[in-house]
Amino acid sequence: MKTAITELLNIRYPIIQGGMMWVGRAELAAAVSNAGGLGTLTALTQPTPQALLAEIERCRAMTSAPFAVNLTILPTASPPPYGDYAQAIIESGVKIVETAGRHPDEMTEAFKRAGIKLIHKCTSVRHALSAQKRGVDAISIDGFECAGHPGEDDIPGLILIPAACARLNIPVVASGGIADGRTMAAALSLGAQGVNMGTRFMMTQEAPIHVDVKEALTGASENDTTLIFRGLRNTARVWRNAVAAQVNQLERRAEGATFEDLRPLVSGARGRAALESGQADDGLIWAGQCIGLIDDIPTCQALIDRMLQDCRASLASATRMFADTAVR
C-alpha cells in the first residue's frame, strides 16, 4: 500500500503502533516495524533519558526498519525532564517522533533542525490546525472511542476523521476505534492516509504485558470500557475493572473527587504492576472501545497481514456494490 504516510515515514504499510505507557518497548516496536508498520517506543516508559537511549539501541538490534519514539507532555505536579528526553531522542538518530498532549513548540524546532518527522496526536480539529501551523508533518486524529485521553469534545471518529481531513493540508492518521481491516478500510474511505492502533497491539504475542491481562481484554465487549476524570476535565478511557469502578464511584459523590482523592487508585506504578503481574483488577488498564472487535492474540506479523487482506476485501466489496448497480 502506498499513501502519503508510507511515503513520509518510509514504511511499507500505513499502520502505526501508537505510544503506550509501559507497553511501548523494544519487543513490540521492533515486531511492528519488521511486519511493515511503524513501531513506537514510549519515551516516558523509561525512567531516565539515558535509559531511553539504551532502549532505542535495543530496538535497533531487533529491526533495521524505521521506528518512532513517542513523547507525551501532560500537566503534572512533578514533570519529568521533557527537554532531556527530547535531546536524547535527537542524539539517538531516530527520525520519527510522535508527540501528544501539550504541543512542545521549543522541542518542535529542535526536532525539525535534526531532520525528524513529527506526528502530533490531537483530539480536535482546532488543535490539529494549530499543530499544522507549528510545522508538524502529520496529524494523528484521536476519536472519542480511543483509549487514554479523548479530549473533552466527545467527537467520534466517524465525524472527526473526515472533518480533520477536510481542513488540514498535511497527512492525517486515524486513531481510536481501529482494530482490524474493516475499520482500517473505513478510516481510509473517510480520507485518512493511515491508521494508528494502541489497544489492538496490546493484544499481540509480542506486547510486553502478562498473558492474563491480554486474555481478559480479548474476552471483553465494546461496553467494557469506562470514562474517568470527567469532573477533572481530563477525561480518560480505561477498561472497566475493579479499580476503574472505584474511581467512578468516588467521582459520582455529590462533592465530586479531587485528584488527590483518586491518586492511590490511579498511580502509574499501580497500573504497571497490574500489566506485569497479570492481576488485571489491581490497577488502571487503558483500553479503547475497539476491545469489542478483538478476540485473539496473534503475532504482529499475522495481525498486519490479516488487516491488509481484510482491508482490501472490504474496499473491494464496497466498490462492487456500485459496479453491480451500474450493470443493472
Score class of each variant (00 low, 15 high):
residue 177 G to S: 00
residue 49 P to A: 07
residue 84 D to Y: 09
residue 125 V to H: 01
residue 288 G to A: 09
residue 7 E to H: 12
residue 205 Q to Y: 11
residue 260 E to H: 07
residue 41 L to K: 01
residue 269 A to Q: 14
residue 31 A to P: 06
residue 4 A to N: 10
residue 293 L to V: 06
residue 243 V to S: 00
residue 201 F to W: 11
residue 259 F to L: 14
residue 188 L to P: 01
residue 315 L to K: 07
residue 176 G to I: 03
residue 4 A to W: 06
residue 290 C to G: 02
residue 171 P to Y: 05
residue 54 A to V: 14
residue 38 L to W: 03
residue 14 P to F: 01
residue 302 A to G: 06
residue 173 V to M: 00
residue 43 A to E: 09
residue 238 V to T: 01
residue 262 L to W: 02
residue 43 A to N: 00
residue 308 L to N: 07
residue 186 A to L: 02
residue 91 E to D: 15
residue 199 T to K: 01
residue 1 M to A: 05
residue 94 V to P: 01
residue 56 I to V: 15
residue 122 C to Q: 13
residue 174 A to K: 03
residue 81 P to E: 08
residue 258 T to R: 10
residue 226 T to D: 01
residue 99 T to N: 02
residue 319 T to A: 15
residue 238 V to K: 02
residue 217 L to Q: 02
residue 71 L to P: 01
residue 267 S to P: 05
residue 222 E to C: 13
residue 268 G to M: 13
residue 173 V to Q: 05
residue 188 L to C: 02
residue 310 D to T: 11
residue 154 D to C: 12
residue 80 P to R: 00
residue 168 L to Q: 10
residue 43 A to L: 07
residue 72 T to S: 13
residue 42 T to I: 09
residue 150 P to T: 07
residue 46 Q to F: 13
residue 156 P to V: 03
residue 180 D to G: 10
residue 101 G to M: 08
residue 80 P to S: 14
residue 250 L to R: 05
residue 76 T to C: 15
residue 157 G to H: 04
residue 283 G to F: 11
residue 239 W to P: 00
residue 126 R to H: 13
residue 27 E to T: 05
residue 87 Q to Y: 10
residue 101 G to Q: 09
residue 221 S to R: 09
residue 312 R to V: 03
residue 45 T to P: 00
residue 92 S to D: 06
residue 204 T to Y: 09
residue 219 G to F: 01
residue 216 A to C: 08
residue 287 A to R: 06
residue 241 N to V: 05
residue 34 N to V: 03
residue 36 G to H: 10
residue 77 A to N: 14
residue 230 R to M: 14
residue 308 L to V: 12
residue 254 A to Y: 09
residue 205 Q to T: 14
residue 116 I to H: 06
residue 251 E to W: 11
residue 84 D to A: 13
residue 131 A to F: 04
